[in-house]
Amino acid sequence: MRRHDPGRRDRIVEVTLELIAEVGVAGLSHRGIARRADVPLGSMTYHFDGMDDLLRTAFTRFAERFSASYAAHFAEVGAREEAVSAIVALIRELSADAGMRDNIVAYELYTLAARDPAYREITGRWMAVSRSELERWFAGDVARQLDALIEGFALHGALDVAPLEIGVVESAVRRLVGA
């Protein structure tokens, strides 16, 4: 057992995200998280006020990490036409098998947010970051529509049995932005 373990809290949060991707929120338990994180069970209540506190912390970290990745995706974009291409590339990445873990975690967050305002605050901040990034090239209403389009195509690309047709994606993005 580790007495001095400054990374314990962070490890618990990261393991929680891993387990959400594997078993969903419904499959989580304090014991399972503690076992996977290799921490004493008492660490769970020492660092968090319960499962809800842990979940809010984990989903906040996930949303912040995803927002940073989203911003980095557009960091080199200098013009509107480049933004259109970056949006299409982002949708392709989000709907690829490599993005499935993050998609699962996001869908678990969305499910909680549909019922609980505390989680809706997390998704609200996340969406605001996404829209503000898109507003660098597009009007606010178009940025909001693009954000929804990105989410929708990513969802369909990740869950539909038919492969996502990038030509259809590009056509939709261009139609929406008037390009």
Rank of each mutant, 00 (worst) to 15 (best):
F59Q: 06
A86G: 07
A79D: 07
F62D: 00
F62C: 00
A83V: 12
E82F: 03
V77R: 02
A79F: 02
A75F: 09
G78L: 05
A68L: 13
E64S: 11
A63G: 10
F74L: 03
S67R: 05
R80K: 11
V88W: 00
A83P: 15
R61W: 00
F74N: 04
H73D: 13
A79G: 02
A79R: 07
A58I: 00
S85M: 02
E64R: 12
V88Y: 01
A83S: 10
V84P: 06
A83D: 11
F62N: 00
Y70I: 12
A86R: 04
F74S: 01
A68T: 15
E82G: 11
A71M: 12
E64C: 05
V88I: 04
R61Q: 11
R61D: 03
A72P: 14
E82M: 03
V84N: 02
T60W: 00
I87G: 02
I87K: 01
R65C: 06
R61S: 05
A71P: 15
A63Q: 06
T60Q: 04
A86H: 05
E64Q: 13
A71I: 15
R65I: 05
E81G: 06
R80P: 14
V77N: 05
V84D: 06
T60C: 01
A79V: 08
A68K: 14
S69E: 14
E64T: 13
A72F: 10
R80M: 08
H73T: 15
A71L: 09
A71V: 15
H73C: 10
S69G: 15
E64K: 08
V77S: 08
H73E: 15
V77A: 07
A79T: 12
F59H: 06
A75W: 11
S85C: 02
S85R: 07
A68H: 14
R61F: 00
F74A: 02
E64P: 06
G78Y: 05
H73F: 09
A68D: 15
S69D: 13
Y70E: 11
S69F: 09
A86N: 07
A75K: 13
S85L: 04
E76F: 08
A86T: 09
I87H: 03
A79H: 05
E64I: 02
A83Y: 07
R80F: 05
S85F: 02
E64H: 08
F59I: 09
E82T: 08
I87M: 05
I87F: 01
A75V: 14
E76D: 15
T60S: 10
R65W: 05
G78E: 13
F74Y: 10
H73Y: 09
A58V: 02
F66T: 12
A75M: 09
F59C: 04
F74H: 06
E82P: 11
A75P: 14
R80Y: 08
E81I: 06
A68N: 15
